[in-house]
Design a protein around this nucleic acid. Structure first.
Lengths: 163, 163
DNA sequence: ACAATAAAGGTTATAGTGTAACATCTTTTA
DNA sequence: TAAAAGATGTTACACTATAACCTTTATTGT
């Protein structure tokens, strides 16, 4: 029996944020990538919750925080950097971005998404990855990346749903 | 050993189109859904190849075919109908739409996508679906739908790649 | 230390994707 | 055949993302 993912448990979210920022600094340090103040700020905003946020939502929060006007390229460039470094993932079905809890190793985008509360839970299943690899191989494809987005109701929203 | 998917083989594509249209008519008939001339035309355009097409590409082809101006809602409404009926799928990673080869039964969106030639191959693997269901259940989620997009190189593009 | 270079960020404009709202036309139903 | 429902036309706009160019900041070589 696997443990309930942290995003679904009550937890001290400040720890998530600090841990994500610390990992990001460490990884970028190793790689010679520059986690500038702006990029760190965007990463922190993405990590405000376990719910994916859109680029324009992030832009608005960035603008609130900085008293100066923030234009789309500012946030998109930061997001591109964070995506390249594997520090965040893009949820295609939502046009939104969410922090990656294990950026130290490259891995596919596999998410459970609650349509009610918006929470995103990253799956890390070797069996799932292998099944996908096998199917890809059977069709003769060379696999480069894969993205799985499962939509439904998280345990909380499931139990409070009465319609 | 599974057979090579039809989208990857040389084949008489006219048969794909006619078969898709015939299935669509039959299914809509059974369901009391109205496959109007416009909707059938959009479905036929989507089926022009096994490569997903964007809404605006479809809109342009529709405009070419009809001598009159075609606005976005025209094509989006047709696409919405076709999606509801399970006659096409949306590829989120590409903002594009592709015909469904087996619309008679509801099934998840599982695709192999070639980044070079654009071909989309729909996977129909019970093992894959079950693995996803198991992972979803383990996290306590109620599964509603799932979408898998595997990007890579199809057999043809793989063998002609020499960089 | 300093010029040359590279990288990051600012700014303006615009491209690409999708929908709201309302009018008109067609089909179905009573 | 009138009323209602469904489909399409039309205009305007919202949301998501990028191109192009300029300024600022950081890094590198000397």
């Amino acid at each position: 029996m696997t443990q309930t993912p942290i995003a679904l448990r009550r937890h001290n979210h400040g720890l998530c944020v600090r841990s994500a920022l610390a990992s990001a600094r460490a990884l970028c340090g190793e790689r010679g990538a520059r986690l500038t103040p702006l990029r760190a700020q965007v990463l922190e905003l993405v990590w405000q919750s376990h719910k994916p946020l859109g680029a324009y939502q992030l832009m608005d929060r960035l603008a609130e925080a900085s008293t100066r006007r923030v234009a789309p390229p500012t946030v998109y460039r930061a997001l591109d950097f964070l995506l390249e470094q594997g520090l965040i993932h893009r949820i295609n079905g939502l046009n939104a971005y969410v922090g990656c809890p294990s950026p130290e190793h490259r891995h596919p985008n596999h998410f459970l998404l609650c349509r009610a509360c918006g929470v995103a839970v990253e799956l890390e299943s070797e069996a799932l990855t292998q099944t996908i690899q096998q199917n890809t191989k059977d069709a003769g494809f060379l696999l480069e990346h894969h993205s799985l987005e499962v939509t439904g109701l998280c345990p909380d929203c499931r139990s409070s749903a009465h319609d």
